[in-house]
Structures are given as structure tokens and as C-alpha cells.
Amino acid sequence: MVIHMTECKEIIQVDHVNLWYGDSLALRDVTIGMPDRQVTALIGPSGCGKSTLIRCLNRMNDLVDTCRIQGTVNFHSKNIYASDVDPVDIRRKIGMVFQRPNPFPKSIYENVSYGPRVHGIKERKQLDAIVEKSLKRAALWDEVKDRLHDSAMGLSGGQQQRLCIARTLAVEPEVILMDEPCSALDPIATAKIENLIEELKTEYCVVIVTHNMQQASRVSDYTGFMYMGELAEFGTTRQIFEAPRETLTENYITGRFG
């Protein structure tokens, strides 16, 4: 299966982005597009800027004082760094799931309903419906439907991670960013998340950072290989893992590095 870039609409376009933490340049002239309803994976050695790049996509880097960004990140062709854009609104539309599951120390129900409530939904029935729908989409409903009011901290790691995904889905985002979502999970929980990603991409644009080459090749449609703050190669996942163009990419994915 070969998909050409031109066939897919890019929902996010990163254009000539440079990013500094203080004086040190962490992203160097990065240009990359994330097609809608596809999974884009970012791979590369530790410290190459994967998390920095994925955090650029929903302005999470705003939270770092020393961080300075140049260039544009367009979401539906509008620069999310424009002065009239509300970062909170961006983070609702472009949700993020982190490496370590981080549920609030509250009930499962409250974890999922928190976002919608913050966004002004008060009616119980409506919240119930959102909670059920989100948990179903996150493939967690069957496991928790009888204990929605138990503490989320009592869930297993894999369940907690799916709860975090449900929490992200509850506010109806268009893009889901995942920074190493499986690295704290066992193989069974990992497989569940991978299956879920497959499901999610029918409705969302998914961007995933992973250190696991096999995972990137299993779940993604496109892969970007980053190296020292640059996007060294971008292509269909098939092409990157079957016949990469750059020697750097080849050496990295075949484990001939350093």
C-alpha cells in the first residue's frame, strides 16, 4: 500500500520552525505535515527533539519559560502561534497523551467528565453520554462500566493510559498527540493501545512519538526520522522501514548507530 502525500489533506503544517531553549537550538528548520485521519510517527535518538516537536503542535512549549519559537505551525491553515489564538482552545482541539499515565486522583467518571465540565457542560445526562462514548472509543468501557465512580488510581497502567486517552477524547479534539504512550506499559496493554490507535485514526489525526521501531512500523502511515533537532527524513512508513533514502535513517533503524 503506497499513499502519496498529495492524496492526503494535511491538517497540521509545520513550516520552517526553529526552537530554542534559552540559547540552545532544539529544532532546526523543521518542515513537516500531519495528514488527517492518518498516523504520523516521530522516531529518532534520545534528545533529537521529538518531544519538543510534538509539544509545538499544541503550544505545550508555552509552559517552558526559556522556550522561543520561530516559524509557523498551521492548524487548518491558521497559525496557532498568532497573537489572537487562545492556547487553551488549541489544546482542546489538539489533545495530548503522555508517556506516564497521569489520571487525576479522582473517580473514573470525574476524570473523563472534567474536560467537558470545564468547557461548560453541566447537564448530568449529557455528561453521562460523553463519558460513555469516550470510554467506548478508548476501548475501556467494558472494563470499567460497573465501577465508574471508583478511583482512577485503582486501574492498571494500561487501563489508566486508555483512561487518559478517553479524557482527551471527551473534549472532541481533532488531533491526538501521543508522546511514548506505551513505554510504561506491558506488551498486552501496549497491544491494546496500538489497536486503539488503529481505531482512532478513522476519526482523528494521530501523531505518536515512539522509541520502539516495530511499534512505529506497525501503527503509523507516515514516519519522520529526527536527528539533532532536524527532520532528517520523512516518508511513508513503508518506505522508511523498507528502503530509507538517507544513510542516517538506515543506520538508526537497523541499529548501526554510534
Binding site: M213, Q214, S217, F241, E242, A243, T249, E250, I253, T254
Partner: peptide, 9 residues
Amino acid sequence: YQPVARDLR
């Protein structure tokens, strides 16, 4: 080893 790229080829 679940090889990729040239190794797999």
C-alpha cells in the same frame, strides 16, 4: 531481531 530496511531485505 525483527530487522528492517537493508537487513530485512
